[in-house]
Amino acid sequence: MLHSACTQLPAESTAATLAEQRRRMPPDSTGYETRPPADPNGISRYYLGRQIAHVMGHEGSDWLERSGRKEEEGTDILLRELKLKPTDVVADLGAGTGYFSFLISPLVPKGKVLAVDIQPEMIASLKANKERYKAANVEPVLGTVQNPNLPARGVDLVLIVDAYHEFDHPREIMRAVRASLTPTGRVALVEYRAEDPKVPIKRIHKMSVEQARREMSAVGLEFVESVEALPQQHLMFFRRAK
């Protein structure tokens, strides 16, 4: 009869096996997992199978205001497809320096734009740009990683451009977004197309419609449509599920 020790894995093999098991553990009931980052451009946090990307710090704000952005992203097309009304309250979530906030401002003269960011440095830029553009209806809002600090049932459109994939608490943020929507409120999610290998953006900074629908559905937001009129991005609309 063999001694039981003969059947045991070496200590290093046991550790490796346990580590592999941890990597393969299914997500908890919230959809989150913690495991080694598959992509160094992302963090060790995953949501519904998607690795979350690193947040772009305020140091990269010049990229938000780059001269070629209008042509690269078809921003005129995006603004047209939002179909805004003059009285709309719009939340620009992950507003950064306010590139879209200040384009939307004149489109909602009887409404307002809530320009939300979690970085105080971005809020300072928003305030400076508000004075520069004399955009009285733009209100900078300091959010947190779990709460965008939006008014309950007070927002007609929540716009999220190239930012959602960097939220490290996407479930909490989008549940708060859902609570902020008016009865007819919409979410407009803009992300680079993961399905298109020709889009010159790192994979971790892209999303597929399928993944976006899965994540929005998990917080009670139902898919309305995907407008594929932009050069490189999906424009996906969601609303509160009935």
Rank of each mutant, 00 (worst) to 15 (best):
M1C: 05
M1G: 13
M1I: 08
L2H: 13
H3E: 06
S4R: 13
A5I: 13
L9Q: 11
L9I: 01
L9H: 08
L9C: 00
P10R: 11
A11N: 07
E12F: 05
S13Y: 13
S13K: 15
A19G: 00
A19E: 09
Q21L: 13
R22G: 07
R24V: 00
M25Q: 15
D28M: 06
S29H: 09
T30S: 15
T34S: 10
T34G: 02
P37Y: 11
D39M: 12
I43M: 12
S44V: 03
L48A: 07
I52F: 04
A53K: 08
H54W: 10
V55L: 09
G57I: 08
H58A: 11
H58D: 07
G60K: 03
W63P: 01
L64E: 10
R66N: 02
R69Q: 12
R69V: 06
E72R: 14
E72Q: 14
T75K: 13
I77C: 10
I77E: 14
L78A: 15
L78F: 15
E81R: 14
K83V: 12
K83G: 14
K83L: 14
K85F: 06
D92W: 00
D92Y: 01
A95Q: 07
F102V: 06
I104K: 04
L107Q: 08
L107W: 01
L107Y: 01
P109H: 04
K110S: 08
K112Y: 06
V113F: 01
L114K: 02
A115Q: 00
Q119G: 02
P120M: 05
M122E: 04
I123L: 10
I123N: 07
A128W: 11
K130R: 15
K130H: 05
E131N: 06
E131Y: 01
K134S: 13
K134D: 12
A136C: 08
A136W: 12
V138S: 03
V138R: 04
V138D: 00
V141K: 05
V141W: 02
V141M: 07
G143T: 08
T144Y: 08
N147T: 05
N149H: 09
A152W: 04
R153M: 00
G154D: 08
V155Q: 02
L157I: 01
D162M: 03
A163L: 07
H165Y: 10
F167V: 08
H169A: 13
P170V: 11
P170K: 13
P170G: 11
P170W: 12
I173E: 01
A176M: 15
A176H: 13
V177A: 04
R178S: 05
L181M: 09
T182W: 04
T182L: 03
T184E: 15
R186Q: 14
A188K: 10
L189Y: 06
L189A: 03
L189N: 04
R193L: 03
A194C: 03
E195P: 00
K202C: 04
K202Q: 14
H205A: 09
H205E: 13
S208N: 05
E210M: 06
Q211T: 10
A212C: 02
R213T: 10
R213H: 10
R214I: 03
R214F: 03
M216R: 14
M216C: 14
S217V: 07
S217R: 14
A218D: 15
L221H: 13
L221S: 09
F223K: 05
E225N: 08
E228I: 04
E228V: 02
E228W: 03
A229H: 05
A229V: 02
L230N: 04
Q232A: 01
Q233R: 02
H234Y: 00
M236P: 00
R240N: 10
A241H: 11
A241M: 12
